[in-house]
Design a binder for these strands. Sequence first.
DNA 1: ATCAAGATTACCT
DNA 2: GGTAATCTTGATA
Length: 214
Amino acid sequence: MPVIMKPVVKLDLNLKLEKEFYARDLLQVAKDLLGKILVKKNGKEITAGKIVEVEAYDGSTDEAAHSYRGPTPRNKIMFEVGGYLYVYFTYGNHFCCNVVTGKKGKGTAVLIRAVEPVSGQDKMIINRFGGKKISGKDLYNLTSGPGKVCKAFGINTSDSGTDLTGNKIFLLNGTVIKKSSIGVSRRIGITKSTELPWRFFIKDSPFISRKAVK
DNA sequence: ATCAAGATTACCT
DNA sequence: GGTAATCTTGATA
């Protein structure tokens, strides 16, 4: 039985975001991603979550970006036109997924740091905790970090390069987030270019990875 | 061929 | 609040 009391939302697949959305400026896309619905389809199975926290990375000026030193086998998809998924593996355990943005050659992408589960919560619990019963407060621990999101959705490096206008992993138009409810801070977990205020999150969401950043 | 660092998480006090 | 775990990637030789 689902532990989560949230009603399963009926997803309208006609609201899929198109290429033009992604091909715009990095910071614009980053803020606009808040409230959008990340969807992964696996046959009949669907996992979906509302994006509540993101970070922007820009290889041209930002030393923390994987693209800062130019294309490599791992990051080359970041240099494509916006609308692809970039997934990398880190710390020996975790995958992180990013939305590539901008024009071809830019090397810009947005890290999806946290989502609010919308559909397929049971599958997320299986992926994250082996299907063990979870308590109510663990709901907020299901997808509240970039590694957690990938684990819950079953996203790994084999998904890197996925075309987000396709039918496997994509985004749907969701809630429009008022400018006044968007929080801004420095980015988490980096040691270079730490001064850039490029983390964006929905202020009152209990599903973000952290409240405050040092 | 070798090595250090890492866009994190879970678990401990 | 602090830190060990874990292994791929990219840089250097």
